[in-house]
Design a protein around this nucleic acid. Sequence first.
RNA 1: UGGGGUGUCGCCAAGCGGUAAGGCAGCGGAUUCUGAUUCCGCCAUUCCCAGGUUCGAAUCCUGGCACCCCAGCCA
Length: 556
Amino acid sequence: MSEPAKTPASNFVRQIIERDLADGKHSVIKTRFPPEPNGYLHIGHAKSICLNFGIAEDYQGGCNLRFDDTNPEKEDQHYVESIQRDVSWLGFHWDGAVRYSSDYFDQLHGYAVELIEKGLAYVDFLNAEQMREYRGTLTQPGRNSPHRDTTVARNMALFQQMRDGQFKEGECCLRAKIDMASPIICMRDPVIYRIKFAEHHQTGDKWCIYPMYDFTHCISDALEGITHSLCTLEFQDNRALYDWVLDNISIPCHPRQYEFSRLNLEYTVMSKRKLNTLVQEGFVSGWEDPRMPTIAGLRRRGYTPSAIREFCRRIGVTKQDNVVEMAALESCIRDELNETAPRAMAVLDPVKVVIDNYPTGVLEQIESPRHPNKPELGSRTLPFGRELWIEREDFREEANKHFKRLVLGGEVRLRNGYVIKAERVDKDADGTISCIYCSYEPESLGRDLPDGRKVRGVIHWVETTTAVAAHFNLYDRLFSVANPGAEDDFRTVINPQSLVVQQGFAEPSLASAVASEPYQFERQGYFCRDCSNEQALVFNRTVALRDTWAKLADKA
RNA sequence: UGGGGUGUCGCCAAGCGGUAAGGCAGCGGAUUCUGAUUCCGCCAUUCCCAGGUUCGAAUCCUGGCACCCCAGCCA
């Protein structure tokens, strides 16, 4: 696109950064994107990615990619690979090597020992249920664990035994000694290390104790010299613990955490747990199913990195809860593809047309522009002959004035071709139209009718002997309600029409279409070839064209 | 009912005491060999509510109300 790059929208995070820069608090900005490798990235992550990497770019700073991998049971190397692929595909570059929280396990362990030495952490033997009871409730303070006053020396020995694998999972854990009466629940002596005899995708079997998020994240940020640690709203309470940890260990750096609201999109779900359910239970073909709100799904659907970035720019960054309409996303990809996608013709639900007065056995080649408003995109050749496929819904035996397509006895323009007139039809035994017989106006190619008569409608078509058979995957919203997450069981509101497969024909130039190359099938929408099938010609509909006619209640 | 947050057009979202940006959606109309695109025009006397301060308030104060998050050895 030739338009000047859109300026990034300012937001409260950027204002904080600009202030910190102006005050001299920081001279270089450092952010990080810290996913847990327990699933694929989705459009909500794209918001965070655009924020973190966008800030690094715009303020000449850096952004780390760090896998927050402190729970080996839920994580997998496959996800760390998919995440790197998706971040790169979105067009961002992380600063230096990929980082892992697990890179810091030794240091984290050292800081845990420091807390124990300072009398600020203890090994507790309460089981999960007891710990919940001791924690109190939202309105009642908690009570101290009977193990809270164990001596430093004893705690040191116990923690060493935990590390040495001398306790069973769940038998004990390490807790920070803060305040069981704190109104902030996560400050009531939070667990900071627990026992897990699990193989870790990065550290193998080196450890049987793993640090918790709240203990790990702040220290990892500090170790990496992060200046602004940006996360979502649900971590607002955790900020107190983030600061407590850094204030109580000997570490020179204290990053500041700021929270913004996560993205919610209508008619889909955004939690990894729910997306995982859709994959595991076969409601979709996988994380890359084009109906998924994942980056990989959107990519296969035909979305581009720039359209996703533009979407993130448009929605902004605030602390307000939000539910963005699907139309906002769709408008981003339409705006881009309208400029970049070459036009082509494909008939998704074909019915045959025979032009009685067109010579048999003749094929003429019609040179047609690839883009109506961009001659620089060149042209392609369209074969035209006596028999064509047109869209079944583009013909009616009779219709009122609103129907601008082919009607018995009426005329219509074949896109890039001649004007034809429907004369009669053949029908199957069940009444289905099997063939439409037409006549054509030989003087109408590339010009108006000789007598100045106006033809109101234009329909697309393909010539039968040269057309290539193709499958078209027509995608629609995955759920039939705007907020599926609010249902008792979101699986019950999956849209049964979320994928409709049609068999039709495409113009010959499409036989060599490659995945990732977009097309506009005129009057239908934007499509791209599916990447999963090299042999068969399969197209995914990225998004339909805007259709104001379909919205009219009184259409023909 | 403890603590932490948020309330500006149907949906996002600017605004930071000087008299309500923009985008999406919608609605008119023009152009059009895509019912697309493009183009022109319309779309918050009002900012959750009620008081107060001020020459002046969406912005400051007081009091309400609504919604979201927190009681994992998840992140």
